[in-house]
Design a protein around this nucleic acid. Structure first.
Length: 857
RNA sequence: GGGGGCGUGGCGGAAUUGGCAGACGCAGCGGACUUAAAAUCCGCCUCUUCGGAAUGUGGGUUCGAGUCCCACCGCCCCUACCA
């Protein structure tokens, strides 16, 4: 027998597969399709264990699906634009493309060494002009549909990356990539109007049965739908007189989900960024204090806002507004806890019911009017019938957020308060009738800021003409190519690169300037999975017929860190392209698997600074790719975090060696060498063969079901059980005895074939070598049909049942598998005679195939 | 503050709808083989006063709970002044 030698087998089979084109997609096979996709990597350098786990899961699904008779699309590419390449180029005085393509080659070689079955003819590299061309084209389609806007507003600025960031890319006030503190800066930037799709993005989460609940929940929270109303207050003078016909400037609108608390509004708040603020206080004695709050708010970074000091700051503007529900005059303040770009940037403050307003009222000694309380509140009895103001301020420790009834609330007194309450409905209805309010739905989701002030990205196809304004680059002029001759190390940018920036207006022909911002790399990753369906199309991003054949992705696999960013943007792109008539489905990813992190043996994140990084290449060099794959799969459920332990890898290497010997032994003819000693009689061998056959059918059933639900660890455990059964059989049945047994020949061949096929998606080189060289087949194991099983043959003639008395196991009985219920019960009772002695048997419960429970007192 | 998840041997983890807790593996221990070691094969491997007890703690529902319900303790992830 030849020993298992992964280092000889793996490169040889990889070459054989590449030569035979076994991993290429067969578009015309007439089979059902399956699109198996793993999130494409950023070409950051060598691959790490996270890549190994992610892509191993995908490869198992792809190979398994092929054996199950699907026409499988399983592609790979690179998310190749982005800052690290640019930084590396500056450091080495080189070009980002050089670093990027070198890293792609390194990673590609590693992926090939891992035996991943990608169709390498379909590779998509985001920084290739033939790909980013179509990213620009899609941008123009968005523009045509009114989904592109330029806006001047305060944006998130990362000083280290020297560029702006989308809201989604600011994590706890820090840059998602470099973790620097993010600043707010007013800039004119490009936006994609994802908010136009907010409602659909929220609603369609319900369609995504194949997505983890937590991802859907995170997206729903991020979209953040709130039902409420806009309520209009009117500026008034110090006596509370409002102008007869107030101008637009004098009408101040707030968004609230709690219109029921309008009677508790004792002051009115504006965000520091509010554009009307200056006009309100200019030249007054309040100007200095108000502007100080405005200036201080700019200095407080988002980090400080997010963590630490929740200390609120504000100042009185000297102005008042009239509350539309009761005509009461309330003071207008500026407050730094009001978010400028949510709702209207103005808030009606109700300190009795809102903790933030409560804290502000306490600090600045503003009235806290109780208007909502539970019936058990001591104040309730006193106030329950009061329509006017009896108590105008209370001495509470914190705001009362309990559900309760409205008090001191005019004609609404006595109604239930709360979100979506009868009180809220009644007040909004009256405001609407009076023209002072409207129903409104607000979303937390902001439009997607996509412009970046960096070189290594997809250029925004726009031209600034002094005459025509901002003009789209005509489709036929695409792609806008990134200039290759740029000296980043010397500080050159697209904006200072005259060859790039200088151009003529496509409309009027005048000298014009090209837009020099590039697109967020997340635009590249929002549609790459569609390009895979038609990767070489030079006329369009993809042929709709091809995209509609392959899409949606049947199984998408990637990290949980993309729960919001990439997955939300991709859903958005899909819906827009559908509305362009290019796609006939609503959601891009039917089933989503979010893999858990790979940590070191102590459960810590692997990082270079900690020095605990495990190198996949070293593991492959020692044990071979198949053992690395097997160990990764066996470590636990794919969506949980995994503690990488090299002992486990050594164990899997031993397991592969054992199966190797078993398959060799099962295949060997009488007279050949066998590892096992002779020992058993023919009857014993036959009984063992029967047992092995049963195990073979049971295990195929279990392994198939487990792989189908991505439980690779338990599928592998089942395969180990078949291996254990094969081992037990081989001990009983040495080759010369098997040769004389008509039962043994077929079962040995069947189990050998089955073991090899079951291992094929997991350890592809190992299985194919056994299949071809040891079992003597002409073709590849990866072209075989997945083994089927017969549930009847998986059953045993006799079953062992537990016999419980009052739920405690007292005995075990063995009965025929088809024994009638009465017989089993009687048998169970007999087995526990002693335990129920002197007790009154009330009931006997029989759970078929499981247990008998005797209820006795 | 809000949202989601988790808690099972020395370790990683099993346990479709409530039905024999600890599958499978790692580590460990003992044995066989060997001059010896490695490799390989076999066996043991939660605790126990041998009645039982045990899935973070305490209650509940049920013939029966790791699984369902309530309260508490602990841990992890996401998110955050969103009116």
């Amino acid at each position: 027998m030849k020993a298992y030698n992964p280092h000889e087998i793996e490169p040889r089979l990889q070459a054989q597969w590449a030569a035979s084109g076994i991993d290429a997609v067969r578009e015309d096979a007439g089979k059902p399709k399956k699109y198996v996709l793993e999130m494409f990597p950023y070409p950051s350098g060598d691959i790490h264990m996270g890549h190994v786990s992610n892509y191993t899961y995908g490869d198992v699904v792809a190979r398994f699906s092929r054996m199950q008779g699907f026409d499988v699309l399983h592609p790979m590419g690179w998310d190749a634009f982005g800052l690290p390449a640019e930084n590396a180029a500056i450091k080495r005085n080189s070009h980002p493309a050089k670093w990027t393509y070198a890293n792609i080659e390194t990673q590609k070689a590693s992926f090939k060494r891992m035996g991943f079955s990608y169709d390498w003819d379909r590779t998509v590299v985001a920084c290739d002009p033939e790909y980013y061309h179509w990213g620009q084209w899609i941008f123009l389609k968005f523009w045509e549909r009114g989904l592109v806007e330029r806006r001047n507003s305060p944006v998130n600025w990362c000083p280290d990356c020297a560029t702006v960031l989308a809201n989604e890319q600011v994590i706890e006030g820090k840059c998602w990539r470099c973790h620097s503190e993010v600043e707010k800066r007013p800039l004119t930037q490009w936006y994609l109007k994802i908010t136009d799709y907010a409602q659909e993005l929220l609603d369609d989460l319900d369609q995504l049965d194949g997505w983890p609940e937590r991802v859907k929940q995170q997206q729903a929270n991020w979209i953040g739908r709130s039902e409420g109303a806009e309520v209009t207050f009117t500026l008034c003078d110090a006596e509370g007189n409002v102008p007869a016909e107030p101008s637009a400037d004098e009408l101040l609108t707030v968004f609230t989900t709690r219109a029921d608390t309008l009677f508790g509004c004792s002051f009115f708040l504006l965000a520091p960024e509010s554009t009307i603020l200056k006009g309100l206080v200019e030249g007054t004695e309040y100007e200095e204090a108000v502007m100080k709050v405005v200036e201080d708010a700019k200095k407080i970074t988002a980090v400080e806002r997010a963590q630490g000091s929740k200390e609120k700051h504000g100042a009185f503007t000297g102005r008042y507004v009239v509350n539309p529900i009761n005509g009461e005059k309330v003071p207008v303040w500026v407050a730094d806890y009001i978010v400028a770009d949510y709702g209207t940037g103005a808030v009606m403050a109700v300190p009795c019911g809102d903790q933030r307003d409560f804290e502000f009222a306490k600090k600045y000694d503003l009235p806290i009017v109780p208007i909502i309380m539970g019936e058990d509140d001591p104040l309730f009895e006193q106030l329950k019938d009061e329509q006017g103001r009896v108590v105008t301020s209370v001495d509470w420790e914190e705001a009362m957020v309990a559900e309760g009834r409205l008090v001191q609330s005019g004609k609404y007194t006595g109604l239930m308060g709360g979100k979506h309450s009868e009180g809220e409905a009644a007040i909004v209805a009256d405001l609407e009738a009076a023209g002072r309010g409207t129903r409104k739905v607000e979303f937390r989701l902001r439009d997607w800021l996509i412009s970046r002030q960096r070189y290594w990205g997809n250029p925004i196809p726009a031209i600034h003409c002094p005459e025509c304004g901002v003009v789209p680059v005509p489709e036929e002029d695409l792609p806008v190519l990134l200039p290759e001759d740029i000296d980043l190390a010397a500080g050159e940018t697209l904006a200072t690169h005259e060859g790039f920036a200088a151009c003529t207006c496509p409309k009027c022909g005048a000298a014009a300037r090209r837009e020099t911002d590039t697109m967020d790399t997340f635009t590249c990753s929002s549609w790459y999975y569609m390009r895979y369906t038609d990767p070489h199309n030079a006329e369009a991003p993809f042929d709709p017929a091809k995209a509609n054949r392959w899409m949606p992705v049947d199984q998408y696999i990637g990290g949980i860190e993309h729960a919001i960013l990439h997955l939300l943007y991709s859903r958005f792109f899909t819906k827009v392209l559908r509305d362009c008539g290019m796609l006939d489905f609503d959601e891009p990813f039917t089933n989503l698997l979010c893999q858990g992190m790979v940590l070191d043996a102590k459960g810590e994140v692997m990082s270079k600074s900690k020095g605990n990084v495990v190198s996949p290449e070293e593991m492959i060099a020692e044990y071979g790719a198949d053992a690395v794959r097997t160990a990764m799969l066996f470590m636990g459920p794919p969506d949980k975090e995994k503690l990488w332990n090299e002992d486990g890898l050594a164990g899997m290497y031993k397991f592969l060696n054992r199966v190797w010997r078993q398959v060799n032994d099962l295949a060997c003819k009488a007279g050949e060498d066998t590892l096992f000693e002779p020992g058993a009689t023919k009857d014993e061998v036959q009984a063992a063969a029967k047992l092995l056959n049963r195990e073979r059918h049971r295990v195929v059933g279990k392994a198939t079901a487990d792989i189908e639900r991505n439980n690779f660890n338990t599928a592998l455990a089942a395969i180990m059980e078949l291996s254990n059964a094969a081992g037990a059989f081989l001990r009983k049945a040495p080759a010369e005895k098997r040769a004389n047994c008509e039962l043994c020949g077929p079962i040995c061949a069947d189990v050998a074939d089955t073991l090899v096929k079951l291992m094929a998606p997991i350890a592809p080189h190992f299985a194919d070598e056994l299949w071809q060289a040891v079992l003597g087949h002409e073709d590849s194991v990866h072209e075989q049909a997945w083994p089927t099983f017969d549930p009847e043959q998986a059953k045993s003639d006799e079953i062992e049942l537990a016999v419980q008395v009052n739920g405690k196991v007292k005995a075990k009985i063995t009965v025929a598998a088809d024994a009638p219920e009465d017989e089993v019960k009687a048998c169970g009772l007999a087995a526990v005679e002693k335990a129920v002695e002197g007790l009154d048997v009330k009931k006997v419960v029989y759970v078929a195939g499981r247990l008998v429970n005797i209820v006795a007192k």
